[in-house]
């Protein structure tokens, strides 16, 4: 089962769809950034989008549908959670409501941008066949929230390089990426508070955390080599712990790794 059924989608590409993508993206872009400077950069950016989309491997669409699938998952998770009575204590309702609003709007943005090329929402089961009391136990809900947000951060990060020749789409992805990181930060803080586990901080320490796959992988959250530099050995970090160095950088996940994490929560496409 491939929950990111993107290759089928790629074969359905037509000129109209690309036009819609261009139009939707431009409209949103122009609304958000009014400066002449930004506007001046638009034509080149969209030329790139169009050219790329007509090429043999339209990576941008692949990436956007991958992102959309993750956003579908997050959005439905919060939609159910926020509407389940007696799940979220009053103290934390405002936080999860805000996260829910963002995820809903991420879905809306991607669906609009992709138009006919948008993948359909899969059917989810957040209990993973009964393994998790996702909507009956608040600590479980927060644990899943934290896991989904940290996965989202790592998933978007893993795709940045695939958008390097699409400046505008890259920027959009980054703008969503950092919001996922804000979500992750607060979900981790709440989990730390309600569990009393002070080792859980707003940032990821080493490769610690549940489920393990969210924090490990090909490029583990515990790694300390950045840009070819072994950071514990460089000047000025003599008094900084290994764990702190791991906290200072978030790491990417590959599509395959994300698929493995999300798989148990997907019933069907």
């Amino acid at each position: 089962m491939n929950i990111f059924n993107i290759f089928d989608t790629l074969q359905k590409i037509d000129g109209d769809a690309i036009g819609r993508l261009e139009h939707a993206s431009r409209r949103t872009f122009m609304n958000r950034i009014g400066s002449t400077l930004a506007a001046a950069a638009v034509p080149t950016a969209f030329a790139t989008v169009v050219n790329k989309a007509y090429a043999a491997t339209p990576t941008a669409l692949e990436v956007l549908n991958y992102a959309l699938t993750l956003e579908y998952l997050e959005n439905e998770f919060y939609e159910i959670g926020n509407n389940t009575a007696n799940l979220i204590p009053a103290q934390y309702k405002a936080v999860f409501s805000q996260i829910g609003i963002h995820e809903r709007n991420h879905v809306k943005f991607l669906v609009t941008a992709l138009g006919a090329n948008a993948v359909k929402k899969p059917t989810f089961d957040f209990t993973a066949k009964g393994a998790f009391p996702a909507f009956t136990d608040f600590p479980t809900f927060v644990t899943l929230s934290k896991a989904f947000e940290d996965t989202g951060v790592r998933a978007y990060k893993g795709q940045a390089g695939n958008l390097i020749s699409e400046p505008l789409l890259l920027q959009y992805a980054l703008q969503i990426h950092s919001v996922e990181a804000r979500h992750a930060s607060i979900a981790r803080k709440i989990l730390s508070k309600i569990s009393g586990d002070k080792s859980i901080k707003s940032w990821i320490t080493n490769d610690a955390g549940f489920p393990g796959d969210v924090y490990k992988g090909e490029t583990s959250e515990g790694q300390v080599v950045q840009g070819g530099l072994n950071l514990p050995g460089i000047a000025g970090l003599e008094n900084i712990s290994f764990a702190t160095i791991t906290e200072s950088f978030d790491e990417p996940l590959t599509m395959a790794e994300v698929l493995k994490i999300a798989g148990p929560f997907v019933v069907s496409l």
Binding site: K157, L174, H177, S178, S202, W203, F249
Partner: peptide, 19 residues
Amino acid sequence: GYLLLAGKIVSVEARHAAA
């Protein structure tokens, strides 16, 4: 490679901002 490095740092800044 630099883009990825910037991505690795920006999400930590966003975690800080939220905290």
